[in-house]
Simulated scan of single mutants.
Amino acid sequence: MVPPPRPPSVPPPPGSLEVLTTAEATVVVAAGDLDLAVTDDLAALLDRLVRQRPAALVFDASAVTFCAARVVTILVDATADAVLNRVPFAVAGRSRSLLRPIAVLGLDRVVPVHRDAAEALAWLAVVPLLTER
Rank of each mutant, 00 (worst) to 15 (best):
98 L>N: 01
30 A>V: 13
88 P>C: 14
81 D>A: 15
54 P>Q: 02
65 T>I: 06
62 S>E: 12
105 L>T: 02
110 V>S: 05
64 V>S: 00
99 L>S: 08
18 E>F: 09
42 L>V: 06
89 F>C: 03
120 A>M: 04
20 L>T: 13
131 T>R: 11
119 E>V: 07
95 S>E: 12
99 L>W: 10
125 A>S: 03
29 V>S: 07
100 R>M: 13
21 T>S: 11
22 T>C: 00
54 P>V: 03
19 V>C: 11
118 A>V: 06
121 L>Q: 02
85 N>V: 06
100 R>V: 15
29 V>T: 10
46 L>V: 02
78 A>G: 06
122 A>E: 14
29 V>Y: 15
96 R>I: 05
48 R>A: 15
107 L>F: 08
45 L>V: 01
106 G>I: 01
105 L>R: 02
16 S>M: 13
93 G>L: 08
62 S>A: 13
57 L>Y: 09
17 L>D: 03
103 A>V: 15
73 T>N: 09
9 S>G: 14
111 V>F: 15
68 A>P: 07
50 V>A: 03
94 R>K: 07
48 R>C: 14
123 W>F: 10
37 A>N: 08
65 T>Y: 08
133 R>H: 15
19 V>Q: 07
35 D>T: 09
107 L>Q: 00
11 P>Q: 08
44 A>L: 10
21 T>C: 10
129 L>F: 09
99 L>A: 13
126 V>Y: 14
114 H>R: 12
130 L>I: 12
54 P>I: 13
50 V>H: 10
26 T>S: 09
61 A>V: 02
94 R>P: 08
82 A>G: 11
36 L>C: 11
27 V>M: 09
30 A>P: 00
117 A>N: 10
116 D>P: 01
69 A>F: 12
108 D>T: 07
94 R>G: 14
47 D>L: 07
1 M>R: 00
95 S>N: 11
4 P>R: 13
68 A>H: 14
42 L>S: 01
13 P>R: 12
102 I>H: 00
74 I>N: 01
124 L>D: 03
38 V>N: 03
107 L>K: 03
124 L>V: 03
69 A>C: 04
82 A>Q: 07
10 V>N: 01
55 A>Y: 02
48 R>T: 13
98 L>W: 01
75 L>T: 00
22 T>Y: 12
28 V>P: 01
130 L>M: 06
17 L>I: 02
29 V>E: 10
54 P>C: 06
3 P>I: 02
74 I>Q: 06
64 V>K: 00
80 A>L: 15
129 L>S: 13
54 P>R: 02
129 L>M: 11
129 L>W: 10
81 D>Y: 07
14 P>K: 04
115 R>P: 01
92 A>L: 12
123 W>Y: 15
24 E>D: 15
120 A>R: 03
130 L>D: 14
123 W>K: 02
59 F>G: 00
28 V>T: 03
3 P>E: 04
66 F>M: 04
10 V>W: 08
127 V>N: 04
53 R>S: 06
50 V>R: 01
68 A>G: 02
